[in-house]
């Protein structure tokens, strides 16, 4: 019996060690490959350089950093309100029969491969932006121009892609709010709407914030769909109709054909992405702690 337990314990330990070790190995590898470029080119020049042109040995990653930030922010601006609204609707308002249709539909969104999202964006969203949205914007700003491959397009598609994450986790958080809270609020004379906004959402906010953080992680890391839609123009964007290249997209596109120096520069881009996501996680977990307490 004892031996048998020992064996199982060891197996569990090995599994845990492999997971931790892979994180460590990947980190070491990325830093080993990328750091020399960061050192020789200068960290400041790399992060704030505005020109990304590896064949000309110019490795300014600012356009891609701005690209990733803008597309992700755009996705959150569109996706978060929509996702939370959807979660409230499913948890609090919708009758059971409606939930039965809506919920699997939202969950299905998570199962669609990202390249399909990308293709949909390319074939539907991009032309709509060029032919329908551009004329509206031109009424206010006659100089505006866009090919449709834009931050806006990427943000719309990413917003849909992060919906399942936000909806599912938020809905669970809302459902986990003790029923007594709701009863108490209603008994005190608050309407259903007041109960939702003043009692249920504040009580569920740590879960809702977790859902946003996870959604954000997915948006930053998404590669394939973004490559197809944002136009991959390594230039610091001036408006939501401009094309941008993202950190992940650039790595994926250029790795195959890159020369030795170029490859190391792409690894350095990987370091930026790595640090970027670490920072997001740290910010998210600290706000989560603060919100959770308050």
């Amino acid at each position: 019996m004892k031996i048998h337990e020992k064996i199982i314990e060891t197996i569990l330990f090995i599994c845990a060690a492999i997971a931790t070790l892979s994180v460590l190995l990947i980190t070491v590898f990325i830093f080993k490959e990328g750091l020399p470029v960061l050192k020789s080119y200068g960290v400041f020049n790399f992060i704030f350089g505005k020109t990304w042109s590896p064949t000309n040995e110019q490795f300014g990653a600012l356009p891609m950093i701005m690209g990733s930030i803008s597309v992700t922010l755009g996705a959150l601006v569109i996706g978060v309100p929509m996702g939370i609204a959807c979660a409230i609707f499913l948890a609090e308002i919708a009758p059971k029969s409606v939930v039965k249709i809506f919920k699997p539909a939202v969950e299905l969104l998570a199962g669609i491969p990202s390249v399909v999202y990308g293709f949909f964006g390319l074939a539907v969203v991009v032309p709509i932006i060029r032919t329908n949205i551009l004329p509206i914007i031109q009424k206010f700003n006659p100089d505006a121009n866009t090919s449709g491959y834009s931050i806006l397009g990427g943000a719309i598609i990413l917003a849909v892609m992060i919906l399942p994450t936000i909806v599912n986790i938020s809905e669970n958080a809302i459902k986990a709010v003790p029923f007594e809270y709701k009863q108490g609020s209603l008994a005190l004379g608050a309407s259903h709407f007041e109960t939702i906004t003043k009692v249920i959402i504040p009580a569920a906010k740590s879960g809702i914030i977790t859902s946003i953080v996870l959604g954000m992680g997915r948006a930053v890391g998404e590669t394939m769909a973004v490559i197809l839609i944002t136009g991959n123009m390594p230039k610091v964007p001036g408006s939501v109709l401009d094309s941008v290249a993202t950190l992940t997209g650039t790595i994926a596109m250029e790795m195959g054909y890159a020369g030795p120096m170029h490859q190391r520069a792409l690894f350095a881009t990987g370091i930026i992405l790595f640090v970027f996501i670490m920072m997001l996680n740290i910010i998210a977990s600290t706000t989560l702690k603060r919100v959770g307490r308050g």
């Binding site: 020109t51 197809l228 991959n232 123009m233 390594p234």
Partner: peptide, 16 residues
């Protein structure tokens, strides 16, 4: 120096 304009869309394959 590769002088391709910075205002070019970049696509990763012939098909794209």
């Amino acid at each position: 120096i590769d002088n391709t304009t910075k205002n070019a869309l970049v696509q990763p394959s012939t098909g794209a």
